[in-house]
Amino acid sequence: MSVQTQYPTASVPPRAETQVRAGGPGVKMVARDVKVYYGAKQALKGIDLDIQENRVMALIGPSGCGKSTFLRCLNRMNDTIENCRVEGLIALDGEDVYGRTIDAVQLRARVGMVFQKPNPFPKSIYDNIAYGPRIHGIATHRDEMDEIVQTSLERAGLWNEVKDRLREPGTGLSGGQQQRLCIARAIAVSPEVILMDEPCSALDPIATAHIEELIDELRENYTIVIVTHNMQQAARVSQKTAFFHLGEMVECDDTEEIFTNPRDERTQGYITGRYG
């Protein structure tokens, strides 16, 4: 997949500044009637969703249902895909993320992302973490940077494992460690929201357990949206769950509600394993 963005203009024409009042208190991000097209093909058919502050929201659904596409709309990662067109409204703290007041760079600093496959840069562990703060000019002194690196690694639960080899390449770590490094890297820029796109799908069960624990701890300071294939995982880590199916958001509720008492029969079919 080649990168074809025309920074800073997004594939959506800039609109007048919109203050979105929808959602209510405690709502970090809202989506209203979000439609996404890849060329002529429609991938999302009008999604409405509220994402609450300091909660973990899980997006579940069969593959190809649009949950990853939706996730990538939240920090405009879809801008980097050719032919991708986004319609509708997505707001962060009431501000339209495709509007004039926020641009993609600023948005992505506030809405971080962790990817399906661990993707540490081929640099040292230290430089991996310091990359974000450096480009955003967060740390002015060396000491400050050291501190950011340490806190980020500590929060990601990786500090004790790597503190003696910060100068070694991040690609030399194990898969689970790499993914925690990527989480630490995302934390280092102090985002408000962290998006996770199936962060454990490439990891073994022990590493997965580590990450899940970490997600639970991170909820205290961050709003987290996680896409997962694994319903047990969704049940374990999230407070809210949204079920996606064929480009639609079928239902969204408290995680417990969804898993014990789904209202839609498609949801029920999916969680009972009839398809997916």
Partner: peptide
């Protein structure tokens, strides 16, 4: 072109601009 897209995504996801991604991630890789 052999540099994986995932590295670019990782950089964009942190809020890097295109030239920052190229200069600091793609070219070193």
């Amino acid at each position: 072109n052999a540099v994986p897209q995932s590295l670019r995504d990782g950089s964009y996801g942190l809020g890097a601009t295109k030239s920052e991604t190229i200069r600091l991630v793609v070219l070193p890789a």
